[in-house]
Structures are given as C-alpha cells and as structure tokens.
C-alpha cells in the first residue's frame, strides 16, 4: 500500500485525488449501494424504477460526452500551467483580480457542478486560494450564463438580477468565511489525505 502511494506522489506527477490506495472493493462500494437501491425501488414500484433508470440513462449520456474534454482540460492545466502562474492569478495575493477571474471562469458554459470538483481540486493543488475556489464553485453552480438566460425567461429579469447580485455578495461572504475557518485550523484542506 505504502509503495503504491509513494509512486503515485512522485513530484513530477503531483496529482490530485490520491485515493488509489483504497482497495478496489471500497472504491466501488457506493456503486453497489446505488444498484441495490435501484433494485429495491423496482421491487416496490416498477413504474418509478423505470423512471429512475430513464433519468439516470439521460444523465449518463450527457456525462459520457462531457467527461473526456473536462479531464483532458485538467491534464492540460496540470502539465502546462506552472504553479506560480496559478498562484499569482488565483492565489492568496491575487486580490480582486483573482475574485473576478474566478467568477469569469465559472460563468462560462461548462456543464454540471460535479465536474467542477476535480477541476477545483487541481487548481487548489496548484496554489489557488480557498476563497477564490469557493467563489468559483458557487458561481459555477448558481450564476452560469446559459442558466441565467433560462431563469430570465421563466422568472423574469428582476428576479434573476436580484438573485444574481445577492448570490454574488453571499458567495464573497462564504468564501472569506470558509477561508478564515480553514486557515485557523489547518492549511492543507485534507487534500493529501483522502477521507
């Protein structure tokens, strides 16, 4: 186990998500639980079971298309962008520029939130600040441009504009607060020790 961990952490491939040392069984445990849940739903209510499988399949197709470019993009960041660059763009000293960059990057049309997690982990490892990454994730989730357009259409301009403004303020508060709380206790976010 130790061996595996060490060769995974060679300085060259200073990579995120060192969960490899978990045994494969544990890795797939959540899948097994989910499959079991599906079976139970099918037994109790076949119609709901079919509906669940249909929805899952729809999402799967979307994910299947979107994952390859996302992970290759992460690879490109990992290999080509030096740590100092990310640090100066998005790090602790990046100030208002870092905040604006985090917001700007996250409003682009890039897909569901769950693909932002590994992206965020990569950026954090490369020196982005916690504050900026909280803002990045929040903007990605709540303030993406295509999503805002749908929102304006169905809930109106003022609803959308007000939610946009308030969410932005909220994200800044959360960002600074989480950074403060995490810095107080430990600096490393627990990224190197898988939970």
């Amino acid at each position: 186990m130790n061996n595996q961990e060490m060769n995974y952490q060679t300085p060259k491939s200073d990579n995120m998500m060192q969960n490899k040392k978990k045994n494969p069984l544990k890795k797939w445990l959540s899948m097994v639980v989910v499959v079991l849940a599906f079976v139970i739903v099918f037994i109790i209510d076949k119609e709901k079971g079919v509906a669940s499988v249909t929805v899952t399949w729809d999402y799967f197709k979307e994910m299947f298309l979107i994952l390859p470019p996302v992970f290759i993009l992460m690879g490109l960041i990992e290999v080509w962008l030096p740590k100092e660059k990310i640090q100066s763009w998005l790090g602790n000293e990046s100030g208002i520029k870092g905040i604006l960059l985090s917001i700007g990057l996250a409003t682009l049309p890039t897909g569901p939130l769950y693909i932002a997690f590994p992206m965020t982990a990569t950026l954090l490892k490369k020196g982005a600040s916690i504050r900026n990454m909280v803002i990045f994730l929040g903007t990605w989730a709540a303030l993406k441009i295509p999503q805002l357009m749908v929102e304006i259409k169905f809930l109106g301009f003022w609803f959308t504009a007000l939610r946009f403004g308030l969410t932005l303020i909220g994200l800044l508060i959360i960002g600074y607060f989480i950074e403060y709380l995490m810095k107080k206790e430990d600096n490393n976010l627990g990224l190197s020790k898988p939970v």
């Binding site: 989910v34 499959v35 849940a37 509906a51 669940s52 899952t56 769950y114």
Partner: peptide, 14 residues
C-alpha cells in the same frame, strides 16, 4: 461519479 449519477436518477425518478 457513476454513484452520484445513480442517486440523481433515483431522486428524480422518485
């Protein structure tokens, strides 16, 4: 990721 996908599907189905 696949696990999350399954849970999302289940919740939306239910």
């Amino acid at each position: 990721l696949l696990g999350v996908l399954g849970i999302v599907g289940l919740i939306l189905g239910l």
